[in-house]
């Protein structure tokens, strides 16, 4: 196994530590990047197998958003599949690895600590908690709380 492949494998290990998407998006950072570097590392990925898209997935995507930058989902797919093979040196791969580790260690969130002033904003202290509860499924919004947001804004 060449040095490049070893570095790529290390990079894949780092990417795998990235948090799982809490809700389903059109493209997943983790999946696309693992697939990308697997080519360099010479690993066959399980992500290449075709996934069956359920009716609910389609409804979800159509209702929620169109593609980022106004691109159609089909065009996005073409771009994803149509990438040429990349050649990367060990140095480049290590750089990528360090950058991702910096992100995983929450370096910037900790260094540029904004405190409760922004995390519990005085105008709407429950704002982020409500979003997180909804995403994580801890406490779902009720019809009443949704109506309250519509009428009073919080």
């Amino acid at each position: 196994m060449s040095q490049v492949q070893i570095a790529a494998k290390q990079l894949i290990n780092t990417i795998q530590k990235f948090p799982k998407d809490k809700i389903k998006h059109i493209v997943s950072f983790k999946d696309t990047q693992i697939e990308r570097f697997s080519k360099i590392a010479g690993i066959k990925t399980s992500h290449t197998e075709k996934k069956q898209v359920s009716m609910n997935d389609l409804k979800d995507i159509v209702n929620r958003t169109s593609g980022p930058l106004g691109l159609q989902a089909s065009v996005m797919k073409k771009i994803q599949n149509g990438l040429a093979n990349e050649t990367m040196s060990v140095e480049m791969l290590n750089e990528q690895n360090i950058a991702l580790q910096n992100l995983l260690s929450n370096k910037y969130k900790n260094y540029y600590e904004v405190g409760d002033k922004l995390y519990k904003p005085s105008g709407n202290p429950q704002y982020y908690e409500r979003i997180m509860n909804e995403i994580e499924g801890k406490k779902k919004e009720t019809f009443g709380s949704a109506l309250r947001t519509v009428f009073f804004g919080k």
Partner: peptide
């Protein structure tokens, strides 16, 4: 609200349009 990694993926999806050949240093 959560962490840098989640913020980075959000930026990747929106600002970078989910570009596959992203340079992680740019994300950082």
């Amino acid at each position: 609200f959560t962490d840098d990694a989640t913020l980075a993926t959000a930026l990747w999806r929106n600002l970078f349009g989910g570009r596959k050949n992203i340079d992680m240093v740019q994300l950082e």
